[in-house]
């Protein structure tokens, strides 16, 4: 989604910008408006998370994190991401191979289907699995009879997370691989490589940064998802509570330091994601689909 700004052109070069630039007051006003808006709506909430978390001092902060329920929530979040992200990674690469390297009818329909989870409310993303696997869902009676629990248990959380992170990798790789074309693969085959050799030695090295980019974004979403997971989790402390859900529980119990302490970890995750994402865009922008148009 992000687009790297090619900075040099932006500074008003004296000769041409004089002809088509805005007067200084307008420029400054627009910069002030833009930055003010970002400060008010983006920076301030971010800062608030850390200030609130540390409002009773660092000791209280660490103590708030060091509770069994919080640690269990962190463990569950890591587990869910560790399952969901690789699943979608494998899907993304395979789907992109079929869609980007071959021509077939119905290709654009397929791409639209892959994008579907992005246009569905997170709550609906959870709801659909309740409709399938919940006690009153399509497969509910069978699951109860066979003593398999999906909803209000970890499998449901994993499924909902896979759903909401479904498009990230595929969506980054499809345009990238489409743009790279099939000539290098054809060259590899004409030089005697078999299919696997072609994929591992030619295709994969060419898409590695795009792949990492997709994984980074889907990981951030997997760890931070709230709505979808909230619907299927059942909010059982210590068992089916992920970090974002734990924030809610603590907050509703008026344990603000605890809530913001967990929130601060998630905010740190977001910041690390943003930094890595920006680094990828700056360093390998030409090897990503998102930064090329």
């Amino acid at each position: 989604m992000a687009t790297e700004t090619k900075a040099p052109a932006a500074s008003p070069a004296p000769a041409t910008a004089a002809a088509i630039g805005e007067p200084a007051w307008a420029r400054n006003l627009l910069i002030a408006l833009g930055l003010g808006f970002i400060g008010l709506f983006l920076v301030l909430p971010l800062v608030a998370v850390f200030i609130e978390a540390l409002s009773n001092g660092i000791g209280a902060y660490l103590a708030a994190l060091h509770t069994p329920d919080t640690l269990a929530a962190i463990r569950l979040t890591l587990l869910v991401a560790a399952i969901a992200v690789p699943c979608n990674l494998v899907f993304g690469v395979i789907a992109a191979w079929a869609i980007a390297k071959f021509e077939f009818t119905g290709r654009s329909v397929l791409i639209t289907f892959i994008d579907l989870p992005f246009s569905v409310s997170p709550v609906i993303s959870g709801l659909v699995y309740v409709l399938l696997f919940g006690a009153h869902g399509w497969f509910g009676p069978w699951l109860v009879a066979n003593n398999v629990q999906i909803i209000f248990a970890v499998p449901g959380i994993v499924l909902a997370t896979i759903f909401v992170t479904f498009p990230f990798v595929a969506r980054e790789l499809i345009p990238l691989m489409q743009e790279q074309g099939t000539e290098e693969e054809e060259a590899a085959l004409s030089l005697g490589a078999n299919g696997w050799q072609t994929f591992w030695r030619v295709t994969l090295p060419n898409i590695k940064w795009g792949l990492l980019y997709g994984v980074l974004l889907s990981n951030a979403r997997a760890m931070g998802e709230f709505g979808a997971v909230s619907v299927v989790s059942g909010h059982i402390r210590g068992l089916t509570n992920t970090m974002p859900l734990h924030v809610e529980i603590l907050y509703n119990e008026y344990n603000f330091v605890g809530a913001f302490a967990v929130a601060s970890l998630l905010a740190l995750l977001a910041l690390v994601t943003l930094v890595l994402k920006s680094l990828l865009e700056w360093r390998f922008g030409h090897e990503l689909a998102v930064t090329r148009h």
Binding site: A10, S11, L42, Y251, A267, S278
Partner: peptide, 27 residues
């Protein structure tokens, strides 16, 4: 335009994509 910290601001625009919604909510 160019101004100090532009790249930072540019990167920050994606914060709502990256920040878990529950965190945004409580903040």
């Amino acid at each position: 335009y160019s101004f100090p910290g532009k790249r930072l601001v540019d990167a920050l625009v994606d914060l709502p994509f990256a920040l878990p919604t529950a965190v945004a909510g409580v903040a």
